[in-house]
Design a protein around this nucleic acid. Sequence first.
RNA 1: GGUCGGAUGGCCGAGCGGCUAGGCAGAGGUCUGCAAAACCUCGUACACCGGUUCGAUUCCGGUUCCGACCUCCA
Length: 499
Amino acid sequence: MESKLKIYNTFSRQKEVFEPLNPPFVGMYVCGPTVYSDVHLGNCRTFMTFDVVYRYLLHLGYKVRYVRNITDVGHLESDADEGEDKIAKKARLEQIEPMEVVQRYTNGFREVMHLLNTLPPSIEPTATGHLMEQIAMVQKILDNGLAYEKNGSVYFDVVKFTQQYPHYGKLSGKVVDDLLQESRDLKKQDEKNNPADFAIWMKAAPEHLMHWQSPWSVGFPGWHLECSAMSTKYLGEQFDLHGGGMDLQFPHHENEIAQNVGCCGTAPVRYWMHGNMLTINGQKMSKSLGNSVLPHELFTGQNNFMSQPYSPMTVRFFMLQTHYRSTLDFSDTALQAAEKGFKRLMNSLQLLPQLPHASNTHPTLPDEDKMVQDTCNAIYEHLNDDFNTAMALADLFELSGKINALYHKQLPPDALGLDTFNRLQSVFPAIILDVLGLKDDTAAANNQLADGLMGLILDLRSDARAKKDWATSDIIRDRLKNLKIVVKDGKEGTTWAVE
RNA sequence: GGUCGGAUGGCCGAGCGGCUAGGCAGAGGUCUGCAAAACCUCGUACACCGGUUCGAUUCCGGUUCCGACCUCCA
């Protein structure tokens, strides 16, 4: 029977059957990047995780509105709501307009996302483009008595809020009393009634480059606010899915919930999903630790961690081999292994349309037939089990073996019944291309000229081989090898691939 | 210090109360002019100590180590 999609909900700490509020529509919000510097690989992992979520939901037939914001203001450099805005700081350092910073890194971000073959979101709203909505939300929270103004800044009153909404802290597993009794020596907390309170509007210091007029001061919105305002605007006061990296659970997402409840009285999100961190040498890869590798450094091989370049699709495949809720450690050897495995998968994908057609309705090898059917089912069961892409890939490799065996005549063409054969033809590419978002990104892929030239060369070589002219045949093979093209002789003729 | 999570074969990484993960590397075989590719077979791994159980890598308790969050990060 059809199994149902189950999603691990961070809020309840368990897998839950996914039931959208208004099927077939699904609202999905993912916290996007703060565009003050290049995206690093850890960011990419999160966005790739939710790209697969998005793709799978589409594959299942849902009409998904996928909103992923661009944070271009409000994200402060240091703790205690006191540091400089990250974008403003970058602008000051580089002596350019803040919006130039934003544009530059937004462009870079989109380029990397494109290389990694992630689908663009349905809406990609910016914080600066939604000042009105954010100011309105601040006002509403003030009206509801859950925030207070001090010297032109507005702070969310966590103490008061927790009295009305006992779930504060649940998402991130915090005990409210601990938060309230935070004894750490934070600088300049005097404006806040309580250290746990957080800014939703901040008065701009005179030297601040980014500021807007508001009822309270010329200033800028708090970091958490834009997600609340924009998710509400585009997905409604309550929506289905919200994703982000684990490190956003607290304080970002916890405060997002607080703002929504404080504004609209409703917990905004039905299913909270959090991707785990990427590590390198066992440590979290993060901008602040200075151990991050930029995507293009990985793609070009120009970095201190890897011995060779890795293509965007190799990286994508590598990441999908690990479940999104596990940490993933980046290493050179692991990537090398992934690169080979990925090529294997791509090779089968390429052979699939060339398989001899089975015209028989019934399989001559029922066990093989059943295995293919079972594995196709397993793919969906595994993806339905909280998007277990690692297991789905294992299933795909099982099918890959059958495809190769059929192609190389190690299984007879009529081994599978027609239904099974057709199912294999549709499921295998659909999962790889549509759901996992993988594609052959070698230089020769989809290059008609290369195909034509190689066809010519391999025909000449076949003639030589037919005449047992091994010298000519081997020269062709060796010269191609120097060009990193591998020639594979099989019973069905010769194929080639870029190394 | 508080909270939470993890420790799997040579490497990476799934998973589960008893039955094959998968990829990479390695061994043997089939095929092949040779090579490559492909296919078949193989290693019997689950940090340590107790407990529950007919049976635990999987559940419970403890120990050690590692990591994350608590403060900007996806």
